[in-house]
Design a protein around this nucleic acid. Structure first.
Lengths: 131, 131
DNA sequence: CTACACCCTGTAGCAACTACAGGGTCAAGC
DNA sequence: GCTTGACCCTGTAGTTGCTACAGGGTGTAG
């Protein structure tokens, strides 16, 4: 498999595949005589793993840990569970933050009566506090 | 006002203040004889504006537009409203994405029975699809 | 007079890619 | 046999929004 095929099979850009190799997430494949990367199914599996973990919002560092853990089949999966739960907590925090933000922004927008900038409540809210 | 005072008055790091100046968000202040930046209240107002907009999640590019708009007091605030609403939509989209993600991750974690990595459902979910 | 806190410039680093520039390779079609 | 075009290679610089030095200068309190 050439890099373009691997990339399209995993909905990844070619540059990203090379990037994953550079940072050591994807092992360097063998090369053809023309120095093209030649991938096998094990690369496809690994890249699929990476992409799915990324889609679930894991950082590359977390993906790296998950990959290491997944290579040791006999180990308890407690650590895996831990990484996933930590990530879930982080997502919950982000959702909470964004929801609070949304509320505030909504309030700010709602206060605007669409006149001139001089009496725009949005600008006013952002401007220096009156207290 | 020296840069440290301005920074602490707006809960900003000194480096960030200098960064805002470098990218043209904050006008360069006058200097003391020792080449220290000397800020006035107009800088305090502008930096407060920037910080509050950032706290509401606006990008620096949006902040730049808002600042430009807020300088033209006679203008209709339609454009301001537009930027804010676009941003609100973006936040809504992010919340929706994160919520969907959260659901999927929760499902993945829930399926784990905490045995070994070999039969860990989390790893399995990330691994190559069986279809 | 000597610490120490503060200020200056300029550069490099973070995440996670993305986008070139400036080449080489290969298969199809004329 | 030669060109066209799609693909591949390496290496570097850009993105966002800061943050963290390195290597200096300044100002003030004890």
């Amino acid at each position: 498999m050439k890099i373009g095929e691997l990339a399209s099979a995993t909905a990844t850009k070619v540059e990203t595949v090379r990037y994953y190799e550079k940072i050591g997430l994807l092992p360097p494949p063998s090369r053809t005589s023309a120095n093209y990367r030649a991938y096998g199914i094990e690369h496809l599996a690994r890249l699929s793993f990476i992409r799915r973990a990324r889609d679930l919002g894991f950082t590359l560092e977390a993906v790296r840990e998950l990959l290491t853990l997944s290579d040791d089949k006999a180990q308890s999966c407690e650590a895996v569970d831990g990484i996933a739960r930590t990530h879930l907590d982080e997502i919950d925090r982000k959702i909470a933050d964004l929801t609070a933000l949304r509320g505030e922004l909504d309030r700010v927008i709602g206060s605007c009566r669409h006149w001139t900038v001089a009496d725009c409540k949005i600008i006013e809210t952002l401007g220096p506090r009156s207290n």
